[in-house]
Design a protein around this nucleic acid. Structure first.
Lengths: 113, 113
DNA sequence: GCGACAGTTCACCAGGTGGTAAACAGTGCG
DNA sequence: CGCACTGTTTACCACCTGGTGAACTGTCGC
């Protein structure tokens, strides 16, 4: 699944910018227009357009054009994908610690028969 | 905490490359040297050095120099930080759905007294 | 129709990223 | 000592990113 790797690339990279993370956090509390998404930040409209487009290409965002306004909504699937990747790695790390604990236990068992 | 935002930037950006994600996944199963981390990939040593340095600056990695070999170990704190951010956003999104359900319930209650 | 408004596109710039080749610095070993 | 080995540093390259200003497209309301 090469496609999945590229998709994860886009998701994590999109989240690797505090402006875009704020936009995602904003969207988590409900839909918003492009203007609303960009209002908190001191940047021009083209910059906002670029950020939103990157979130959209990462699948974190869906857009619905309604007249002259673009209504954006969060897409939880991409977020879930990132969440699963991190959780899986952390789980493997935890398992390794368990294995370490087991081997320590067995050593102790041998030392104290 | 501006520092925290920059740290999250580095963590997510570091994870936004499949090579580095593979390295992190490898480290989740135990420590490894720089050479071991780079062996699976068809790239030169300076490229590996750069990737590892980026993981280190993101706090995903700690390094212990032992003679001429650098032994790398995963640092779960940075991973936990990313995990928490994603979890918090997803939780807010879920709460919004709950609120929506509540308001729908209240509407139904009004329509069927 | 006309102006205000929401967004996008285009051209441009500074700086970061992913990769290379070549040279260098330490360390281990026969 | 001399050589192999691990890893870093130093240019250098193509490309992407985050930002700008100016011009453009389309829609709303008077």
């Amino acid at each position: 699944m090469v496609n999945s790797a590229e998709q994860l690339d886009r998701v994590f990279r999109a989240l690797g910018d505090s402006t875009r993370r704020s936009m995602v956090a904003r969207l988590a509390r409900g839909p918003a227009t492009i203007g609303e998404l960009g209002r908190p930040f001191a940047m021009t409209k083209p910059a906002v357009t670029k950020h939103v487009k990157m979130l959209e290409r990462a699948g974190l965002l869906t857009r619905e054009v309604d007249g002259r306004v673009h209504r954006c909504e969060i897409d939880p699937a991409a977020l879930a994908q990132a969440h699963r990747w991190v959780a899986r790695v952390r789980e493997h790390w935890g398992r390794r610690l368990d294995d370490l604990a087991d081997s320590l236990d067995s050593v102790q068992a041998k030392e104290r028969p």
